[in-house]
Structure formats: C-alpha cells, structure tokens
Computed example of a mutant assay.
Amino acid sequence: MVSDSAHPRTRLDDNFASPIRFSLMAALVDDVEMDFGTLAHVLQVGDSALSKAISHLQSAGYVFARKGYVGSRPRTWVHSTAVGRKAFAGHVDALRAIVELGSPQP
C-alpha cells in the first residue's frame, strides 16, 4: 500500500542522532536546568563527550549553557530552549509513528 504522505523518518532531527544528545535533551525536556556534573552523572558519560554534545545542541539553538560560580568553583548549567523542546517533541513523535507503522494492525 502506497501512501501520499512522507514516511515519518523524514521528520527525524539529525541533531538527536547521537544517543548522548538524545539523552541530554530527554533529561532537559521539562525546561529543567542541570549543572554539568549532574548531567554527566545522570547520563553516565565523560566530560569530553558531554561537552561535545552540549556544544552541538547549543549551536543548533536547542540548549543554552550558562557559566557561573558556586563559591570559588566554576560551574556550568544547561537548560533546553523552547525551540529545542519543540524539535525534540517532533523527533519523539516521529519515532513513535515509525514504531506504529511496524506494529500489527488489528
């Protein structure tokens, strides 16, 4: 059966192709702000991999990182942007649609 509509995979966002970037956005989906150390712990990734993921998503406009200090120690906090949350929701919807296509129809 051929459909006139595009396959849902065409709605996937390549910015979330990396499992670390995908997981990062999932952790920040509810407009939560987390510090770098907490994100590294939650995502179970090293500092370098997390830093690269944040940089990539920040370049796409999907997250914002702000730097500051807690006492004399430097800290970085990261939160998702409205654009990033919308893009991630669209990506997840596309994944769900792909799964539904493969599910047996009643």
Rank of each mutant, 00 (worst) to 15 (best):
M1E: 12
S5F: 12
S5T: 14
H7D: 14
H7P: 00
P8V: 11
P8A: 07
P8M: 09
R9D: 13
R9H: 04
R9N: 06
T10Y: 11
T10P: 01
N15E: 12
N15Q: 12
N15S: 13
F16K: 08
F16S: 08
S18T: 11
S18K: 04
P19I: 12
P19C: 11
F22M: 09
S23T: 08
S23Y: 00
L24H: 09
A27P: 00
L28Y: 01
V32D: 11
E33N: 04
E33W: 05
M34R: 10
D35S: 08
T38V: 14
L39R: 11
A40K: 09
H41I: 02
V42C: 02
V42M: 03
L43R: 04
D47P: 00
S48E: 14
S48K: 12
A49G: 09
S51Q: 05
S51E: 11
S51Y: 02
K52R: 14
K52C: 01
A53G: 12
A53C: 08
I54D: 02
S55H: 09
S55W: 00
S55M: 02
S55N: 10
S55A: 13
H56I: 04
H56Y: 08
Q58K: 13
A60D: 08
A60F: 00
Y62C: 03
F64K: 03
A65F: 01
R66F: 00
G68Q: 03
Y69T: 06
V70Y: 07
V70Q: 10
G71H: 04
S72R: 10
R73E: 15
R75P: 00
R75F: 06
R75H: 05
W77C: 01
W77A: 07
V78R: 02
H79E: 08
T81L: 01
A82W: 03
A82R: 02
A82E: 07
V83N: 04
V83Y: 01
R85D: 05
R85A: 06
K86N: 11
K86T: 10
F88S: 07
A89I: 10
G90C: 07
H91M: 06
L95H: 06
R96D: 14
R96F: 11
A97V: 11
A97I: 12
I98P: 00
E100D: 13
E100Y: 05
E100T: 14
L101Q: 12
L101W: 04
G102K: 10
S103A: 13
S103V: 12
P104K: 15
P104M: 15
